[in-house]
Each structure stands twice: as structure tokens, then as C-alpha cells.
């Protein structure tokens, strides 16, 4: 009662009432300050290695080995990047990685996309089992599979080839694609395809003209996840390939670690930055879907 009268008394007819400043609340202010302090700490601690990686890749070798280290380079230089391309096999590794990751992704998208469509749209005996098995595949330890796969690769004379890596990576990217796309197809109403069939499409046309365009964002997302998985993959590369011309980035860079008498930290860090760029670019592409995809259990832990 009295509050109503008060605010009425303070206001001009037709004007605004008394302005209630939120910042005037001490409790509110303290909690906001806390939030910013925490956020600042978290960002600087977690972000520091990233910052350091990028910054140091532009340092001259003198500065890289100087102690105490300087936080910003005195002389910014691109020498590390240039040397990486001139003195090392980095370009070869990069192309190999593109071939392996691209090949595995494409194979999983085509094969797994069709499989997921079938799992989502049709009812048949053993369908649930198949769905559960795809999830299980996805949980299998790589070290368990690498031993028999190594055997097959050697037996088939595919050792030290990129194709062996493409196929081996598919063992993980295919279940990922199937599991993810199955739920994606489930979210596209079946009535759209039915409608298309009544409108005059065959089942196949309905898939191509209606379902495929609608599933495209999902295919792009899961393609990025698959690509990233294969781009990062290390164990298969380590076991299956050995020659310089067949190395992928993860293996190539890894063999440089600990050989800092040969390869400078500058080049290594420049390489690290370049390896990260495609991944980050791809993630920017699907950024909005990332949270959804990951929280649906749609992606493996690397």
C-alpha cells in the first residue's frame, strides 16, 4: 500500500517512476566483481598456452631460447614459418593429412549417412542391436584394434600407405557418423518424405530432394567431427606408416619433439599453429552446432 503511494508521489503525471539503479545494491556489485575476476583468471590460465604458442612462433631463435623469456617478441619474424616450408617436409605431411582426413570423412559420410538413414527410417529385425553396436564400436580402445589391423595391413601389403590410414580411421569415424546422423534423421519428420512421395517422388527422389538438403547441416557437422578425429589421429599413423613421404602431420610433428638440436622450437611452434588453423576454421563453421552435437554424445573425446 504505502509503497504504491510513495512511487506515485515521486512520479510526474505521464512520466517515469523513480529510477531503481541495480548497481546501487552492494550484494549485486560484489557478486559481479567476483564473476569478472573468476572469468579473467580462468581465461588467462587456460588461454596462456595458446597465447604462448602463437606468440613464440613469431620469435627469433635467440629470443626463443632466452631466459627469462620475454612475453612479447622484441622482433616479430616470419622466419620460423618460412623455414618450416623450406627446410622440412611439413608441406608433404600437410597434404598427407588432408588426404587421410578427407578420405576417411568422405567415406564415412557416404556409407554412414546411408546406413544412418536406413536405421532411422525403416523398422527391421536387429535394428536396435545394430544401433547399439555402432555406439559400442565407438567406445573400443584403439590399442585393441591396432594390433589385428596392423596384421591385416601387413598381410595385404598396405603397410606404409595412406589408404591404410583412411580405412583404419573409418573404424572410428563411421560409427560416429552413423550414431550422429541417425538422431539427425530422426529429427527430420518422416511426413516430409511421405508428402514428397505423394507429390510424385519415388523414395529415392524424396531422399535426394527433401531429406538430403535438410540433413546437410548435420552432415557438415559430423563431417567436421570426423575430419578432426582423423586429422588428430596418431596411433594408427605411428604403427602403419614410417617413410617420410607417407607421414601425416601428427606423426611428423611428433617425431620432431625431442630433436630440438635439429628442429628449432620456432619451427615446431609455427607448425603447431598451422596444424591448428584448419581445425579451428572448421569449428567456426559449425560453432553453433558444436554444443548440441557434443552434448548428444555425438563426438569422441579427441
Amino acid at each position: 500500500m504505502s509503497t504504491t503511494e510513495l512511487s506515485l508521489a515521486g512520479s510526474q503525471p505521464g512520466g517515469l517512476g523513480r529510477y531503481n539503479r541495480q548497481a546501487a545494491d552492494l550484494h549485486y556489485v560484489t557478486s559481479r566483481v567476483m564473476v569478472y575476476l573468476l572469468a579473467f583468471t580462468a581465461v588467462s590460465v587456460i588461454g596462456f598456452p595458446l597465447f604462448w604458442m602463437v606468440i613464440c612462433s613469431f620469435k627469433t631463435s635467440t629470443e626463443l631460447y632466452q631466459f627469462p623469456p620475454a612475453f612479447l617478441p622484441h622482433d616479430w619474424t616470419l622466419t620460423n614459418y618460412r623455414d618450416l616450408f623450406i627446410q622440412t617436409n611439413f608441406p608433404i605431411y600437410f597434404v598427407n593429412s588432408l588426404v587421410v582426413a578427407g578420405g576417411a570423412t568422405l567415406l564415412s559420410l557416404v556409407v554412414g549417412g546411408l546406413g544412418a538413414y536406413s536405421l532411422s527410417r525403416f523398422k527391421f529385425a536387429g535394428m536396435r542391436t545394430v544401433s547399439m553396436l555402432t555406439l559400442l564400436c565407438y567406445m573400443l580402445p584403439e590399442v585393441l584394434l591396432v594390433i589385428p589391423l596392423y596384421l591385416f595391413v601387413v598381410d595385404l601389403g598396405m603397410a606404409d600407405t595412406l589408404i591404410s590410414l583412411i580405412i583404419a580411421n573409418t573404424a572410428f569415424t563411421l560409427p560416429l557418423t552413423m550414431w550422429f546422423m541417425r538422431s539427425y534423421f530422426n529429427a527430420i519428420p518422416a511426413s516430409l518424405e511421405e508428402s514428397a512421395m505423394i507429390d510424385g517422388c519415388s523414395r529415392f527422389q524424396a531422399m535426394r530432394k527433401v531429406t538430403l538438403p535438410l540433413a546437410l547441416p548435420g552432415l557438415v557437422s559430423v563431417g567436421v567431427f570426423s575430419f578432426n578425429h582423423a586429422w588428430n589421429e596418431f596411433l594408427f599413423a605411428l604403427v602403419f606408416t614410417s617413410s617420410e613421404t607417407k607421414k601425416v602431420l601428427s606423426l611428423g610433428l611428433a617425431t620432431w619433439i625431442g630433436q630440438d638440436n635439429i628442429y628449432s622450437w620456432g619451427m615446431l611452434l609455427a607448425g603447431a599453429v598451422l596444424v591448428t588453423i584448419p581445425v579451428v576454421l572448421f569449428y567456426l563453421l559449425v560453432q553453433r552446432r558444436l554444443v548440441v552435437g557434443l552434448s548428444e554424445g555425438g563426438v569422441k573425446g579427441e
Binding site: 598456452p49 595458446l50 604462448w52 610433428l253 619433439i257 603447431a272 591448428t276 581445425v279 579451428v280
Partner: peptide, 10 residues
Amino acid sequence: LIPTVVAVLT
């Protein structure tokens, strides 16, 4: 998001 090998290098 960054590759494991990049994290390890850094």
C-alpha cells in the same frame, strides 16, 4: 579443439 600433438608441443 586443437590437435593433441599441438597441445603436446606447446
